[in-house]
Every structure is written in structure tokens, then in C-alpha cells.
Design a binder for these strands. Structure first.
Lengths: 145, 145
DNA sequence: CAATTGTTGACTAAAATAATCAACTTTCTC
DNA sequence: GAGAAAGTTGATTATTTTAGTCAACAATTG
């Protein structure tokens, strides 16, 4: 039940993009540096978002990437699923055919509830929420020092 | 965010044990057969439960395993954690020292909420609940045929 | 044209997963 | 007490996933 580095890195990358929204394109190398993600790895993490139309990009000098939609319209669920695949904790929840036991399996029910719970969190959180939270954290950091 | 075969198999095994509670010891090979788990693998899945004192065992002819506590006192959280380790979706949620960003990381907050959500489900479900659910499923199966 | 930056695909090392096997210990039954 | 039955343990293995690297390429700017 772990989120992989893909998921962690990728989410951080999109938060970074949301923080630098409505500026000029953000360069991958800057995201990589700020979020401490290997650049060559980050390239592969951004690509699914571009394919899904969540992120736009432009190549060449002064190129970069940016969000195709306002941050409040991008739910964490999309983000995580693009990185990690279905959030269902077991295959048979989304695809009952996969296991002959599905129909009468009590444990499967619980995994289904787990999916619901996870889904509720990820559906209710947008990149905008993340940006705001991050801002609050930065503020209290400032107050402390 | 997947549950491994360990988790799936092990949970099924404990449900099976709960179903056959207050009978004579249940043999691993019977669990293996009913739950469709490779016997040699099941042996390794049961061992953590024995070590944790949730399952008791006796060797030799007519030996077997059984629950050390009534099913309603065994939460799925214990079961899953013994099989898969901490349910925290990222290490830094349970162990902030692990990442220097922890203190001011907004994404970490969300992973924390995810843990809470997962925790709520697994804390509120016991083996007894599973047994009852399974019984209901078996009943409706009977009605249908 | 040269520098910059994203895109893509091939490749690899390391770790986790899902077993399997064999030797061993305990217990029961005859 | 012998032998079969059953759980215990540790070593080993094949496969898959993960995390990352590298290099060639394509597009864009100045």
C-alpha cells in the first residue's frame, strides 16, 4: 500500500507547476532542482500528463511546461492515477472478471471500501488546495524565523 | 497503492480461520485448498501472526492453527500491517525524519489524510465482520440456485 | 546556425514479490 | 518407540517492478 516515487515526485512536480501558474513556461530543470527530482526521471513523469492534456509543453530555448487547466480544476485523483494507475488496492475491485472468487468474496468488499475511502480524499483535493496549504506552511515558516 | 498477494492471501487465510473458529485446529493445507493459496507460501504468511500472538499453532499429526482471540477482537488493521508493514502510503508520514522536506511539505499532508482514511476502514472492520459478510454472500448464493 | 529545451526509446541496477524446496522439530497414533 | 503428519525455518530462485540513466532526436529561439 505504498505510493511509489513516481507518485510522490509527480505530485510534487504538479504542485510546483501550480505554484508557478500564469507565469511563463516552467523549465523541467527548475522543477527538478526545487523539488529535488532527478531531471532525467522527471522527464518521464511529465510525459503522461502531457499526453492526458493536463500539462502543455513547448520545446526549445525558453521552452517549458505549464498547466493546461486552472489548478482548482485538477484533482489529485487524476494526478495520482496517471502516475500509478488505478487507485483500487486490488485488481478485482475494478475488474471482477480477473478473479473467479470476486462475486462471493468478502475480503474483496473491504478492498472496495478502501478504494472508496482513498477516492474520497483524492477527489476532494485539487492542486489549488495544495498550493494554499503550501503557502500556509511557508508563512508559518516565515513567522518562526 | 496496491495490496500485495501477501496481504490478499493472508487476509483470506485469517477469514478462513475465523470461519472455522471454535473447532479443532485447522490445517494449513485445508486453508490453502479452500482459499487457493500455495501451501508453501501460506506457511510463511501465517508465521507473522503466530509471532504476534494472534494465531496459535500446534505441530504434528492432527496439529494446525487457530485464532488466539475471538474474531471480533481482531481488526483488519493488525492483519494487514503484519503482512504488509505500516499502512502509511509514504514513509515520511510515520517517520518525518526520513525526509528533510517533511516539515513544510504540502503533499505529505495529503498522504497523511490518505493514511487516516485507510486507517478508518481497517480499524472499523474485524474478522467477525468479514465472517458475517461472507455468510450473507453464501446465503444469497443459495437463494439464487 | 547554435544553443536550448522537451520527447522518446533503449537500457540497466537494485529491490521487491511470489513463490519453491529441503531440512528440521514437534506431536499424534499405533 | 517407530513412523507418519504437520508446523517451522532458512536458503534459494525466477519474475516483475521500480528508479534511474543515457543517447539520439525534434522543435524553438535568437
Amino acid at each position: 500500500m505504498k505510493i511509489s516515487s513516481r507518485g510522490k515526485y509527480g505530485t510534487r512536480a504538479l504542485l510546483d507547476l501550480a505554484q508557478h501558474n500564469n507565469e511563463s513556461p516552467v523549465q523541467l530543470k527548475d522543477i527538478a532542482q526545487r523539488q529535488q527530482i532527478p531531471l532525467a526521471y522527471l522527464e518521464h513523469l511529465i510525459s503522461p500528463f502531457v499526453n492526458a492534456g493536463i500539462v502543455k509543453s513547448i520545446r526549445g530555448a525558453r521552452g517549458g511546461v505549464w498547466l493546461a487547466k486552472p489548478p482548482q480544476e485538477i484533482k489529485l485523483k487524476e494526478v495520482v492515477e496517471l502516475l500509478e494507475g488505478s487507485i483500487a488496492p486490488v485488481e478485482c475491485v475494478s475488474n471482477p472478471m480477473e478473479c473467479p472468487r470476486s462475486e462471493f468474496c468478502a475480503t474483496r468488499d473491504v478492498w472496495g471500501e478502501l478504494e472508496q475511502a482513498i477516492n474520497a480524499v483524492l477527489e476532494s483535493t485539487t492542486l489549488k488546495d495544495l498550493v494554499e496549504r503550501q503557502r500556509q506552511k511557508e508563512q508559518s515558516k516565515g513567522v518562526m524565523s
